[in-house]
Design a protein around this nucleic acid. Structure first.
Lengths: 303, 303
DNA sequence: TCTGGTGTTGCCCCAATTGCAACACGGCGA
DNA sequence: TCGCCGTGTTGCAATTGGGGCAACACCAGA
């Protein structure tokens, strides 16, 4: 879009921190980009970048401007989506920031279901921990976020809250696999594939372990659920995952809920930036994922 | 601002309904304006205007676009205000839609007090009845609205609600001027200068008169409080006004509250568009007017 | 049918934007 | 200390995009 091009350039330079780099990506010359920024700054009456020998960095005014630009671009996307909906076709782009727990089963499944009905809607999935997922939403980088135990933030508006038990992941031949729910103590009699410290459930586990004073035999620690799953399915190792993060068809992997006396249910929250109105495409995707989660796991409360 | 110029042109054409007229106002030729709009439409992929022999009219998509444009322009104003605040000076423009009741005393007084501290902030005052004041806020034409008994609208977010008695306006020599509060019945023994049907208090009065079954001797009816006031101060005629709309220093005019058994207190509401964030200038003006009204008339509740 | 209103189009021109190349400056390693 | 490579910036020339002028097509009302 013509009238947004300058804004996009500025946003790009702000994130890359380099004019030459952005110029290459935007397929223009550095000189043109420099002048675009200079013109914008002079129109605004204030510099928005600090010129460092290493490149460009936003100053305080620039942070404000960047936020404004992101909002403008997102709002324009919303307009396009609304216009497309007017003519009967749903069109648009949805960016969702999700905890890694959902990157394997839930998110691709929901996106596939949505795109089956609305093939002109495209998606971006940002895998972020709960902190960064919330700030992605706050910074207009993502439309919505699906996270575990989000940090309390006034600008993050929950659209759906589920309370989910943590599950132990294990091979279906595992001695514990016959039980319906198991105690944390039982798990710890086996080697553990421990979620890394960037994963939200790590902290929940940690807190419970400290509280119960139980020793842990960690054989592997990883930030990747992919890794954890493969360990859990291969040996008699146990790993952990939130209920909704357990893939439906998971080979010889089974999930058993941890007794809630050991680990209280965890909040699973789907949310957006407070006060922001989503595009039609995004808003309908929220509806779908909400009703899907709600019907599958119940206990949903909208707020 | 360069990148907003096309948007402003479109907004102008949308309101004027005529390319030639807008072209004259914007100091460009009609041909240039036509092409601007055509380019925008082709970029968007949809026409946003219907070309009629009488001029241009927005279609459904255009209504969406206009709303988007107004939002963008308002948001940019907010950015400028924030940037100015960064450098210590408050700067910006505030548009307030107010009932005519406040056009004489309250609004100019508050604006003067504000501008005494922040002379770089400018104001627009739109005098509108309660319906149109609310829709001005909803359509991004005004930042805030100060109205009597606003119609219920989900997108209108009250920032301050006062409950105000209606007052009878009369000369200070008037027989009723000695009383503290008076009954509606007493007023009607005198000739009445009746607010016109576009004024909100007319409907309140009307309802009470019908309920009490009282006959009215209307000598003049006017949509202008200016007119009503001059009648009330000149002869022994009585007119009406909401408490906060009574000018402080009003010559030989006095205001006496109507007994609340006859006329229940009226809502006086200061509000904005729900979910919209105001510019620094506007937000601080809201603070000032809120605390001013609150301390003068009490009974304020924020919601 | 004529007149006055509308928006639109072809052509021309000017000005704003871009690209290329050279520049100035700062960090870093030899 | 010097040279190199990185950064952003500037002069000048080429190009593009936007604007003005005049003529056009269309429609409503007299």
């Amino acid at each position: 879009m013509r009238h947004l091009k300058t804004l996009q350039c500025i946003a790009d330079v702000a994130t890359s921190g380099s004019i030459r780099q952005s110029a290459a990506r935007l397929a223009i010359t550095p000189s043109a980009l420099t002048r675009k920024i200079q013109d914008f700054e002079s129109e605004l009456g204030t510099p928005i970048f600090e010129r460092m020998p290493q490149g460009m960095r936003l100053n305080a005014a620039g942070e404000l401007v960047l936020r404004h630009i992101r909002a403008q671009l997102a709002d324009f996307e919303r307009l396009r989506s609304q216009l497309a909906d007017l003519s009967g076709v749903r069109r648009g782009h949805v960016t969702i920031a999700a905890s890694q727990a959902f990157a394997h089963g839930l998110i691709p499944h929901e996106i596939a279901a949505y795109r089956a009905q609305h093939p002109l809607v495209s998606f971006s999935v940002l895998v972020r921990d709960h902190i960064h997922a919330v700030s992605a939403v706050a910074g207009f980088e993502a439309d919505v976020a699906l996270v575990i135990a989000p940090p309390p933030a006034p600008e993050f508006q929950p659209l759906l809250i589920l309370h989910q038990p943590l599950c132990a992941l294990m091979s279906k031949d595992h001695p514990l696999a016959s039980a319906r729910t198991i105690r944390l103590r039982e798990c710890l009699q086996y080697p553990i594939a421990m979620p890394g410290p960037t994963l939200a459930i790590r902290h929940l586990l940690q807190a419970a372990l400290v509280r119960l004073g139980l020793p842990v035999h960690t054989v592997v620690e990883s930030d990747s659920f992919e890794i954890l799953r493969s360990y859990a399915s291969g040996e008699n190792i146990i790993s952990f995952q939130i209920r909704a993060g357990v893939p439906e068809a998971s080979g010889n992997l089974v999930a058993r809920e941890i007794d809630q006396r050991d680990l209280p249910p965890t909040q699973l929250v789907l949310g957006q930036l407070r006060g922001r109105s989503l595009s039609v495409a995004a808003s309908k995707f929220v509806d779908q994922i909400s009703s899907s989660l709600h019907s599958r796991y119940g206990d949903g409360t909208t707020g």
